[in-house]
Simulated scan of single mutants.
Amino acid sequence: MTQETPDKPNESIEVGGAVWFRSGNETLGGAARIALLAAIRQTGSITGAAKAVGMSYKAAWDAIDAMNNLAGAALVVRAAGGKGGGGTTLTPKGLKLISTYGAIEREHRLFLERAGAAIEGFEQDWQLIGRIGMKTSARNQLFGTVRKITRGAVNDEIELALSGGQSIVAVVTHESTESLGLKEGCDAFALVKASWVILMADEPVRISARNQLKGRVSKVTRGAVNAEVSLALDDSTTVTAVITNGSVETLGLAEGQSAIAAFKASSVILGVTG
């Protein structure tokens, strides 16, 4: 999870990218290798070029050998004279490669600038892309806004408001609150494993689980022993629980039935996207 430093001001998000050449499945050259070729053109030596781009002499020659092999023709040729001696020059194909890369990179940069300027609300959309592309073992991934932070002696209680009006409470350490940059009004997501969720009939029940979310059963998927039961809290938010088939029968859970998903505040993992 990406962490955000609380005292650091949020910087605007821009579209970015990089250009590289490929030969089959192998990378022929990107910015670093093209910079090496350009430095060879300028200095006339491997030693000087390697120093200019911050490479070791061996790494520079390894890169040149790889480019020559992948290009199927020499891009760099070295005259006799030993290590660091003699002259090193680019072939016409090597010079053309630098020129072509420069032209493509300029067009690529213009494309990124146009794309960033044309997409309204890009920053918000990019954060959404980051959230929906997140990979985690927790089945339930709920996005919301921090409504309230209650400081305790050791831990903090974080209340996260969900889109449909309900809220989730999580208990985290002071250190986690600070390292995640949690504060009222900021966006965050809650992760809750399906095995941590208890389902109850839609009746008032007094239990120790702090979180009790009301919804309607949207899907019941039975297995050999257990069943996956999904509860729709609203049009966009669903909570899934794994319970036994016997519990499904006892509670009479079926699509459309009202139910409550309950889980402890200590079972909630909070995260942010920077």
Rank of each mutant, 00 (worst) to 15 (best):
A262S: 14
A79K: 09
G85W: 07
K148C: 08
A66M: 08
S258N: 13
L199C: 06
G215H: 02
E120G: 12
S163R: 11
A161N: 07
I104D: 09
I98C: 10
A66H: 07
M134A: 15
G223D: 11
E203C: 07
E123W: 00
E255I: 05
R222P: 00
A261R: 03
F143H: 05
L160S: 03
K183V: 05
A59Y: 05
T240R: 05
A39P: 03
M67C: 09
L253V: 11
M134L: 15
P92E: 11
A52P: 04
T150G: 06
T27L: 13
T27S: 13
S23V: 12
A39D: 11
N211P: 04
S247M: 07
R22Q: 13
V154N: 12
V272K: 12
I198A: 11
G29D: 11
N25R: 13
S12E: 14
S247G: 10
G94H: 03
G252C: 09
M134Y: 12
F111E: 12
A79G: 15
A170F: 02
A201I: 12
A59N: 15
G223A: 11
S266H: 02
I198Y: 01
A50F: 03
K96M: 10
E26V: 09
G86H: 07
S236H: 10
I198S: 13
G185K: 08
V77T: 15
A66P: 01
L213W: 02
V197W: 03
M1Q: 06
R106E: 15
I158N: 03
E184H: 06
L180D: 03
S56R: 10
S208G: 08
G116M: 03
I243L: 08
V239D: 06
D202Q: 10
N155T: 11
K8T: 15
S12G: 08
G30V: 01
V154H: 09
L180V: 09
V171S: 07
N211R: 06
G181F: 06
A254Q: 13
I158A: 04
S267A: 15
G246N: 13
L97T: 00
L95W: 00
Q42H: 11
W196R: 11
P92H: 03
E249G: 06
L97R: 01
G72W: 06
A31V: 11
Q42W: 04
T47A: 15
Y57I: 13
D125Y: 10
E178N: 11
I168M: 09
K214P: 04
A31K: 10
G256R: 07
E123I: 05
G17S: 10
S267K: 03
D65V: 08
E4V: 13
Q212N: 13
E228N: 12
G82E: 13
L191Y: 00
Q166V: 04
S179R: 12
T240A: 12
W126P: 00
S99Q: 14
E175H: 10
A80D: 14
T136V: 15
S176N: 10
V220I: 10
I98F: 05
T27R: 15
V77C: 10
Y101M: 06
F189M: 14
G133Y: 03
A32W: 00
D202V: 08
I158H: 02
T91Y: 01
A74P: 00
T2Q: 13
E123C: 07
S208C: 09
G121Y: 03
I243T: 02
A259Q: 02
G165T: 14
I269Q: 09
G44P: 02
T47P: 01
